[in-house]
Design a protein around this nucleic acid. Structure first.
Length: 479
RNA sequence: CGGGGUGUAGCGCAGAUGGUAGCGCGCCUGCUUUGGGAGCAGGAUGUCGGGGGUUCAAAUCCCUUCACUCCGACCA
């Protein structure tokens, strides 16, 4: 193995200090930087390119399921935000308010949107009149602001980029179906694009979104066993519709309230990418969203023919993959380290010895495996390798999740596992939020993650109170 | 919001009992190098976070303020 001393110095070891390791990756891979605005970050070109790739992939999935993009204002008048009681209680504490415009004090203060349910509702009240106007399937890409007390790059910042889908349906069934459909879109996206496995299911009453009847969630596990709420999909029933007086004339010629959903994911997913896949040498990116999928490093560029060959390879591959040819005068070793730090899935080395043999060297970022391959059919070789890398990354993350998922049958089990084994705990639950509170208190933060769609029957009684169990729940600490 | 930590060159840091700012990396120039963060020679870069005070003299002492960060609590 190579001498990695410098890199070990540069990045804190993951096992030594996970939090510091995380911020080191963010900085060294040039994903983001701190800004002069409290709690806000600068997303740098490399980080933003990852987000753009995520956006493109998700946006395609949204369009395929019939959704349209719109844009709503970033300001919400106070009276609008207050129309739905639970909603305002949930969000008012972390709102940023605009009270002055230019030099004039506003007569009504404006919240900078923490989420846009209320704005969508105001608009829907105007444009929905008949069942023929339904469903309305809107999505918005924007940023939102939540005045957080503690912030961390990508995981929790005062302003963050996200998408929020807001839909209206004729019937409760349709809306519930939409809620589940969009959760599935997220699950597929995590698996097929980010190579991240997750548990998913329904949130308990206590963990639901403010104003929702049901909240569904996808909960990937980070490498250290801590969960990250990776995306949520909410079913609102007709609660907001009633508060905002959204009605339509139905097929029965009577007035009805439409049924509503919303669903969202954010730049937090970039945090998940880091914490699920990356290692002590830097970022490891799944090929589908890597801004650079293949970095070509020519060796001994002063030797005749090397640079020409590298350019030839670049030109033959650039239309099939996101390729970077690095012909800068940095040393090869520097370039190797650089692209590893940035998580580029494959490095291609081409030097005089290779050219003689009509071959090149491919090095996998995820396993560091070195492959000597023929230049014939190189695009096929690379394409297959990228597919393999994705699938291996998923498998490793899946194994980590399985390894760090434990079953607790008794209260003592639960406490012991939560103290000694990081990860998810599967345990039965009576349905009472008091048990959730108690478990969280005694374990120092283990909360219910979700009730999976496919529950296992582990035992008959609640792991906390011993009363008859209603559900199997995944539990764990979260970011 | 509670408890800790840190602000000095682009980054990481050193600067005792006050004396007018330095190291490593990076950056620029040139030559030599090139299969795991290259070598030599030369060069540029600072309102010492801000404000106030003590002093002949403050990066250093005092007061005050701001920011960032880590660990909790709260939330996506």
């Amino acid at each position: 193995m190579a001498d990695n001393k410098k890199m070990v110095e540069a990045i804190t070891s993951r096992d030594e200090d996970f939090a510091k390791w995380y911020t080191d990756i963010v900085k060294k891979a040039e994903l983001a930087d701190y800004s002069g605005v409290k709690g806000c970050m600068v997303i740098r070109p490399y980080g933003y390119a990852i987000w753009e790739n995520m956006q493109a992939d998700m946006d395609r999935r949204f369009k395929e399921t019939g959704h349209e993009n719109v844009y709503m204002p970033m300001f919400i008048p106070e009276n609008l935000l207050q129309k739905e009681k639970d909603h305002v209680e949930g969000f008012a504490p972390e709102c940023a308010w605009v009270t002055v415009g230019g030099s004039e004090k506003l007569t009504e203060r404006l919240a900078v949107r923490p989420t846009s349910e209320t704005l969508f509702c105001e608009h829907y009240a105007k444009v929905i009149n008949t069942y023929r106007d339904l469903p309305k399937l809107y999505n918005q890409w924007c940023s939102v602001v939540r005045w957080e007390k503690t912030t961390r790059p990508f995981l929790r910042t005062s302003e963050f980029l996200w998408q929020e889908g807001h839909t209206m349906h004729e019937t409760a069934e349709e809306a519930q179906e939409e809620t589940r459909r969009m959760l599935q879109v997220y699950i597929d996206f995590y698996k097929e694009t980010l190579a991240i496995p997750a548990v998913f299911g329904r949130k308990t009453e206590k963990e639901k979104f403010a104003g929702a009847l049901e909240t569904y969630t996808i909960e990937p596990m980070m490498h250290n066993g801590v969960a990250l709420q990776g995306g949520t999909s909410h079913y609102f029933g007709d609660g907001f519709a009633k508060s905002f007086d959204i009605t339509f004339t139905g097929r029965d010629n009577k007035l009805h309230y439409p049924h509503q959903t919303s669903w969202g994911t954010s730049t937090r997913m970039i945090g998940a990418l880091i914490m699920v896949h990356s290692d002590d040498d830097g970022l490891v990116l799944p090929p589908k969203i890597a801004p650079i999928q293949l970095a070509i490093v020519p060796i001994a560029t002063h030797k005749e023919g090397v640079l020409e060959k590298a350019e030839e390879l670049y030109n033959s591959l650039k239309n099939k993959f996101r390729v970077k040819l690095d012909d800068s005068d940095q040393s090869p070793g520097w370039k190797f380290a650089q692209y590893e730090m940035k998580g580029v899935p494959i490095r291609l080395e081409i030097g005089p010895k290779d050219i003689e043999k009509n071959q090149c060297v491919l090095v996998r970022r995820d396993t560091r495996e070195k492959l000597f391959v023929s230049l014939d059919n190189l695009d096929k070789t690379i394409s297959d390798l990228l597919t393999q890398i994705h699938s291996d990354m998923y498998d490793r993350a899946y194994e980590n999740m399985v390894e760090k998922t434990h079953v607790a049958l008794t209260y003592d089990d639960f406490i012991e596992i939560s103290k000694e084994k990081p990860g998810f705990i599967k345990a039965m639950w009576c349905g009472d939020s008091q048990c959730e509170d108690k478990l969280k208190d005694v374990t120092g933060g283990v909360k219910s993650r979700c009730i999976p769609f496919e529950e296992e029957h582990l035992s008959d009684t609640c792991v906390c109170c011993g009363k008859p169990a209603k559900h199997m729940v995944y539990w764990g600490k979260q970011y």
